[in-house]
Nucleic acid binder design. Structure first.
Length: 495
RNA sequence: GGGCCGUUAGCUCAGUCGGUAGAGCACCUGCCUUUUAAGCAGGCUGUCGCAGGUUCGAUCCCUGCACGGCUCACCA
């Protein structure tokens, strides 16, 4: 009587008997004039005016006491208790009420009152079934705990775990804050292609697809960068895009194959301006979401009112190794890795080895809000070289709460130099070569027309959503994180 | 990809030193017109993730697989 099929059947039976009683289990609409939280907030006025209100939501729990019942109705704003009394709704309605169960969506009319225990409630005068639920809700006290089910059936997670919606509401406000910040400063929001014949702007393996009518291979973008800078060349001066990028790489607590990135480009600026933007933007998000510049992530608190630290990539690494890393040969750098049991691909260039060493030796110690600057030129093909310091570029990666949250440069706008850098990248491609950037002739043509000096910045929206909601896994700030299929598809295991 | 851990009722979880399993919630029946994890009385509920192996007997032991979590690696 209570296995899954039986529970489903009992609910189907209820649906049928409701239909026999003339109740439409899936009516088209319901006029509600208020929400659960508004009833709480405006209680005194509503009572003074003896107002009747209507709300709509999901029945979460029911406490039946013969000829009267209490129940909790949940809508997006919160929960309100309703009081259903036979004397008030009449015998016919109460008979129907008995067929209504937890999980069903209902619309309710009633007058606000306070129970003996002092809880604000609605004395129900009438109600309507809005949608019949055919599946039982998870446990009312513990909710839904199983992470796999929570991610796969996010709808159930949202129904029973109220804190989940709060995270995503915050994420939405975070994005709104960024948009407002940029719109207020004259940035133009644009949309550039997701399907690209060449991928670029980052180093990552792409997803590939095929367009039938044009019979051409296409890539899902790994970055928006090269298209946005074409717009800067076109005179748009200040542009930004907030959208999904796709990288065909592993999945872990800070990586999902599709993720949201904000990229902005500002003509006549450089990377120092970008640092200022990051500081201001993060401060505004903190104030908007938390009302304070102080944020806590994983138990550690940072104050965003202060300027961020600057840490030189090459200096910090040189200090850690005890030698100027820019002076070292490929062989010497490899020796440093061997000594520390750091594995390297065979074709690793100096720059790639430096990045590897940095990740192991320096990055773990970056806890305060920090701009890592002075990246090796070799691993930064789109950034301008520092005039006062050859070999390193005007680039930074912002770190917040120990996480790399973005990437920014003074954009390289010399087409001759850009071609050389692309060619160097192509030469560095390994046997598979999919991570290295492709030579984008049209992008170089755009630079040949002339692109103003430009500062560019990319910020990982998922990562900063983690920071500002104190979630330690990227899956908890993505509504539908990528998981393997629930059931292995028959014959679909060719790898 | 490696290591560790998990997978038992719709949900949250116990448990079986190998003899096919339990609680709470949910559900069903009855009582109950201010309850709130409502209460009281009674009842139902399982391919113990999947497939093999060992065994008289496996949910438990072994092997493989699937999915998930953590972690390391990969990934500028």
């Amino acid at each position: 009587m209570a296995d899954e099929k039986e529970l489903f059947r009992v609910r189907l039976d209820k649906r049928h008997s409701l239909e026999e009683a003339g109740v439409d289990p899936y009516p088209t609409r319901f006029d509600r004039d208020t929400t659960a939280s508004e009833v709480h907030d405006q209680f005194d006025e509503l009572v003074a005016e003896e107002r009747s209100v209507s709300i709509a939501g999901r029945l979460m729990t029911i406490r039946r006491m013969g000829k009267a019942s209490f129940a909790n109705v949940k809508d997006r704003s919160g929960v309100i208790q309703i009081y259903m009394k036979l004397d008030f709704v009449g015998e016919e309605a109460y008979k129907i009420w008995k067929k209504i169960e937890a999980g069903d969506l209902i619309g309710v009319r009633g007058t606000p009152f306070r129970t003996r225990a002092g809880e604000i409630s609605l004395q129900v005068s009438g109600f309507e079934l809005l949608a019949k639920s055919l599946r039982p809700l998870p446990e009312k006290w513990h909710g839904l705990r199983d992470k796999e089910t929570r991610y796969r059936q996010r709808y159930v997670d949202l129904i029973v775990n109220p804190e989940v919606l709060q995270v995503f509401e915050r994420r939405a406000r975070l994005v709104t804050t960024i948009r407002k910040y940029l719109d207020d400063r004259g940035f133009l929001e644009v949309e550039t292609p997701v399907l690209q014949p060449l991928y670029g702007g980052a180093s990552a393996r792409p997803f590939t697809t095929h367009h039938n009518a044009l019979n051409m291979k296409l890539y899902l973008r790994i970055a928006d960068e090269l298209y946005l800078k074409r717009l800067i060349a076109g005179g748009c001066e200040r542009v930004y895009e907030i959208s999904k990028d796709f990288r065909n790489e592993g999945i872990d607590k800070t990586h999902n194959p599709e993720f949201t990135q904000m990229e902005l480009y500002e003509a006549f600026s450089d990377y120092n301006d970008m640092m200022r933007i990051v500081e201001e933007m993060m401060r505004e998000i903190a104030l908007e979401l938390h009302g304070t510049t102080s944020i806590t992530f994983a138990g550690r608190t940072n104050d965003l009112a202060e300027p961020w630290k600057r840490l030189s990539f090459v200096d910090a690494l040189s200090e850690s190794i005890g030698r100027d890393v820019m002076e070292m040969t490929n062989k010497e750098l490899r020796a440093e890795c061997d000594q520390r049991n750091i594995d390297l691909p065979d074709h690793s260039s100096n720059g790639m080895i430096l990045a590897e060493l940095f990740d192991h030796l320096v990055e773990p110690g970056i806890l305060d809000p920090t701009f890592v600057i002075d990246f090796p030129k070799e691993i930064s093909p789109l950034a301008k070289e520092r005039r006062d310091r050859p070999g390193v570029v005007e680039r930074f990666e912002p770190y917040l709460c120990g996480m790399e949250i973005g990437n920014a440069f003074s954009e390289l706008n010399d087409p001759i130099e850009q071609r050389k850098r692309f060619e160097a990248q192509v030469a560095l491609r390994g046997p598979e070569g999919e991570e290295a950037q492709q030579l984008d002739e049209d992008y170089i043509r755009a630079l040949e027309y002339g692109m103003p000096p430009t500062g560019g910045l990319g910020i990982g929206i998922d990562r900063i959503s983690m920071v500002f909601t104190d979630q330690q896994s990227i899956r908890d700030v993505i509504l539908f994180p990528l998981l393997r299929p629930e059931q292995a598809s028959p014959g679909g295991s060719e790898e």
